[in-house]
Design a protein around this nucleic acid. Structure first.
Length: 414
RNA sequence: GUGGCUGUAGCUCAGCUGGUUAGAGCACCGGCUUGUGGUGCCGGAUGUCGCGGGUUCGAAUCCCGUCAGCCACCCCA
């Protein structure tokens, strides 16, 4: 056991946890489907270039978190660290610009070489959605509403808040960026070490620094909202109003930013306080520049991704699973007939458990452990009379019934 | 990548300032009950005390290293 451990940051997902993951994924899938999103499953690995181009050479993900390797044919391959890049690639590869808009839902494992922590693993799982080809705020509104809907359906909405901000279009953003760099450069001495390095490569990120000293500087820093040009402001207002009219509660957070260049306009996160430091459960934004940056036709996009593990930890209870029916042969003569009966029941849609060995007591015990609702006891004698014993495992009541009535009688336990 | 805490049975943990056969509860297996589970009673099995090295007459206990987990930074889902 000591030598056969899973790789750091990975683990085996089973039982309750597995059911939790499944539940999150299936709720996300069905609700997304209701909004017209079609599922897409891109490969879990791509040429490394796909991620380098979309995530940018300087992002943390690309510089230190990718699982990359050279395959036997000499290709540079990377296990996907997130889902959008693969979809953008698929969009271009398949010439999907021909029938816009495209609405995609995806689900699956992602890989990032990070130091494991609560809500942060090296192999983790996401569900996500993307809308490609819609330049107007309707897409932003729809996609955020979808996120809120999924959280509500999962019963975790009350544990989250929706934070939202606008990064403006390219013009607004670069104007703001200049002012911000100037401001922080002036106060460089007071800035934390981390933020000083961010000043050079990613000044916007200073805005959500966790350093206490930085907070004061940030509080007095020029605000993005003052630098949005008219188009950008109008866009943001429309998103905000649209969400309000759909009854979505929002909290505008002018310090919410996105690191990567191609992000513009809407940036949002559904965050929670109950998961410690890893508070974002759904995060996304608009990325009008992405497809073009990858070499495709200029196509606007907006999307989000959600962490299945994180959402799953928020779940307070799982939907109850179907209780099985235990089919129990009491003696050897009944063994093969029991198989037949179990098979018939399974084919008519019942969940049936039948153990492989053990006397009656053991099989009853097993039925109990499996949380079976009813046991069908079969013996040679009874089968000779064409009957079986039906035992209600909750009340303990049991009676002998004709085999022909079995399916009907069991329907009461469905 | 940086810092702090932790690592004893399948799980949750106890084991005081080093002292000889390493414990409990839950779970598991068996029996009371050879055709009846969930409660009860009785019994049983299970550990290279994370791994490697060191100090010592003696290490689960102290020291060093390493690996892993947790928490935070960083980053993000």
């Amino acid at each position: 056991m000591t030598s056969l451990k899973p790789v750091r940051g990975t683990h085996d997902i089973m039982n309750e946890e597995c059911r939790g993951h499944r539940h999150v994924a299936s709720v996300a899938r069905t609700i997304s489907h209701r909004y017209g999103f079609a599922e897409i499953a891109t490969p879990v690995f791509e040429f490394s270039e796909v991620f380098r181009r979309t995530l940018g050479e300087i992002s943390d993900i690309v510089t230190k978190e990718m699982y990359s390797f050279e395959d036997r044919g000499g290709s540079e391959i990377t296990l996907r660290p997130e889902g959008t890049a693969g979809i953008a690639r698929a969009f271009i590869s398949n010439g999907m610009a021909q029938n816009l808009p495209c609405k995609f839902f995806y689900e699956g494992p992602m890989f990032r070489y990070e130091r494991p922590q609560k809500g942060r693993l090296r192999q983790f799982h996401q569900v996500g959605v993307e809308i490609l080809g819609v330049p107007t705020p309707q897409a932003d509104i729809e996609i955020i509403t979808l996120g809120a809907h999924i959280l509500r359906e999962l019963g975790v909405a009350h544990k989250t808040v929706l934070e939202i901000n606008s990064l403006g279009d390219r013009e607004s953003r670069s104007a703001y960026s200049k002012v911000l760099v100037a401001y922080f450069t002036k106060h460089r001495d007071a800035l934390s070490e981390n933020s000083c390095t961010r000043l050079g490569r990613n000044p916007l990120r200073i805005l959500d620094s966790k350093d206490k000293g930085d907070h004061e500087l940030v509080a007095d820093a020029p605000s993005m909202s003052d630098y949005l040009n008219d188009t950008s402001q109008a866009f943001f207002d429309e998103v905000l109003n649209g969400l309000k009219s759909l009854g979505i509660k929002i909290s505008v957070n002018p310090r919410l930013v996105r690191g990567l260049d191609y992000y513009c306009h809407t940036a949002f996160e559904f965050t929670t306080k109950v998961l410690g430091a890893q508070g974002a459960v759904i995060a996304g934004g608009r990325y009008d520049g992405l497809i073009e940056q990858m070499g495709g036709p200029s196509t606007p996009g907006v999307g989000w991704a959600a962490g299945i593990e994180r959402l799953s930890m928020l779940l307070s209870e799982l939907p109850s699973s179907l209780r099985p029916i235990a089919v129990i042969p009491v003696d050897k003569e009944a063994q093969s007939k029991a198989m037949n009966i179990a098979q018939t029941l399974r084919e008519s849609g019942y969940v049936v458990d039948m153990g492989y060995s053990g006397n009656l007591a053991k099989r009853m015990k097993r039925a109990d452990r499996m949380n079976a609702c009813v046991a069908v006891l079969l013996s040679g004698d009874e089968l000779g009379r064409n009957s079986a014993t039906l035992r209600d495992l909750d009340s303990g009541e049991q009676s002998e019934i004709p085999l022909d009535d079995l399916t009907d009688r069991l329907s009461a336990f469905r």
